[in-house]
Amino acid sequence: MSQPTLDKKTFLILARQAGFNPTDPHLDELFPEVQLMLERMEMLFDSPVDGFEPGYRSPESEV
């Protein structure tokens, strides 16, 4: 499973939902940061984690 890359129009819709003012010029700086984050995260969805659940350890266990 992979995440679709984000276009600017969708980004602005999501930004509005998250409480940003879509006309704020700051969003022009944030957009590439978010795009980069999502692109990098695609690798997470390509990880060999079959059989692994998100609870990662018993807190007191030794590795």
Partner: peptide
């Protein structure tokens, strides 16, 4: 600011998947 704000756009599944990778490495380190 940008690092923190980027989190508003992170898919929930990415966080869960990251925790699964973490679990994978529990076994690898063990």
């Amino acid at each position: 600011r940008r690092r923190i704000e980027a989190g508003f756009f992170m898919p929930v599944a990415a966080y869960v998947q990251a925790q699964r990778v973490r679990a994978l490495f529990e076994e690898r380190y063990a």
